[in-house]
Amino acid sequence: MEMVVQFLCARYPRLFTYSARTGRFWNGVRRLSFDTRRLEPLRFLLENVPEDFAVMLEDKATGHYHLRAGVVLSAIGWNMGTKMGKALHEIHTPVPDYTKIGGSVDRYFANVACDKPIQRGSWGLEVGQPLYLQPGDAEWATRAAQDPALRLADVHLRVDWQTLRRLPRSRAVVFNFKALFTPLEDLRREPRVPRLLATVLREGPPAILEYKGTHHTLHVALPALDAWAEEQEEKGRVPRGWKARTLDENPFYPGWEQGLESKCYS
């Protein structure tokens, strides 16, 4: 809560203010005041920021990190009730091949530094913009079949932008994320991306693609991505016959240096 207050007031000083004398935080977006000395910290996060938070604490006896607290409102296929108290390897049981990397992930968590937060993105294709969806929900059943009436305009790329950050006093690792949706049609303007995504959807490990739950969108997404990839080659936006592959350095892409120069001098 303290870190969020510091960030909001420094980044958006016209919208958020904090009084060290009274402990009150003013949210100019919602036009509400909050007493940070009385309000439970997770409740404060729930009321003031759109990101989700999960607090992982180390078990000193085993060295494993366990989920001990959090506020999560934008999960697909899981919820806090099914994960609370579990260790990382237990939380990630549904993830294919996680057992191969579980030990290294635990060591990675142990070495996260307070001043070096880590960011990554987790992606999938969705119909509409489902923020919170659980097995048993009526909409969940639609993910098992391909709707012939599905429109391209209804398919979105969902990316959960995730951050891992060490808290300085408790030494807990906070895992926080925010879901962002992009209409699939927007990728038409992104050089190389349509062919790259189509290649991943066709050639990616079947277990991973099944875990991501992309099947219900493929009959609409793949033909569109193929058409856009061909269009980009015909218009000379990408070299014809280039091999779709991820880049050696992320998140860079071909031509990023020119884009940086144009931004610096514009």
Rank of each mutant, 00 (worst) to 15 (best):
A20Y: 01
A75Y: 05
L197P: 02
V55S: 03
F34L: 13
V200R: 11
A61G: 13
F181R: 04
W228G: 02
E249M: 10
P50D: 09
I208Y: 11
L222D: 04
L201Y: 06
I91E: 12
A10K: 11
L196N: 07
H64G: 14
G204L: 00
Y108H: 11
T214M: 10
G128I: 00
L88G: 01
Y132A: 14
G85D: 10
H156M: 11
H216F: 04
D35V: 10
R21A: 15
R120N: 11
G63I: 09
M3V: 14
V200G: 03
I101S: 12
R11S: 14
G70N: 04
Q134I: 04
P251D: 07
E2C: 00
A244T: 01
A54N: 03
Y265F: 12
V220P: 04
E40F: 02
F109N: 02
P117H: 02
P223Y: 05
D147N: 11
P117L: 00
A179N: 12
L8K: 08
G204A: 04
L184G: 09
R107G: 15
H215G: 13
P41C: 04
K116R: 13
R195I: 05
Q129I: 11
D154P: 00
G23C: 06
V95T: 09
P183R: 10
Y211C: 00
R43W: 02
K60T: 08
K263G: 12
E257P: 04
R21C: 07
G77L: 08
I118E: 08
P94W: 08
A172H: 03
P191R: 08
V105G: 01
V220T: 10
K178P: 01
A54H: 01
G85W: 03
R171D: 00
P96W: 09
Y265M: 12
H66T: 02
Q134N: 10
N250W: 14
A198D: 08
E234N: 07
W242Q: 10
D248E: 15
Y98P: 03
E233G: 12
C114G: 11
G121K: 14
S266T: 13
E58W: 00
T99A: 15
E2S: 05
L133W: 09
P148N: 13
G259S: 13
G124S: 14
E210C: 10
I208D: 13
Q258T: 08
H66D: 00
T163P: 02
G70M: 02
L45F: 02
V220M: 07
V127D: 02
V49Y: 07
E231H: 13
M80G: 09
Q232A: 01
Y12G: 03
F34N: 03
E47T: 07
E126V: 14
R107D: 15
G102R: 15
F252P: 07
T199E: 13
Y65I: 00
L88Q: 11
L196M: 07
A61L: 12
T246I: 14
G241V: 02
R171G: 00
E230D: 06
L45S: 06
V174N: 06
S74Q: 15
E185I: 08
L247M: 15
F53T: 01
L131P: 07
A87M: 06
R165F: 02
G70E: 06
P191I: 09
N250Q: 15
V5M: 04
E2N: 10
V174E: 07
T246A: 12
A10Y: 00
M56G: 01
Q162I: 13
R189P: 02
A221S: 10
A61D: 14
P194S: 05
C9V: 12
G85I: 09
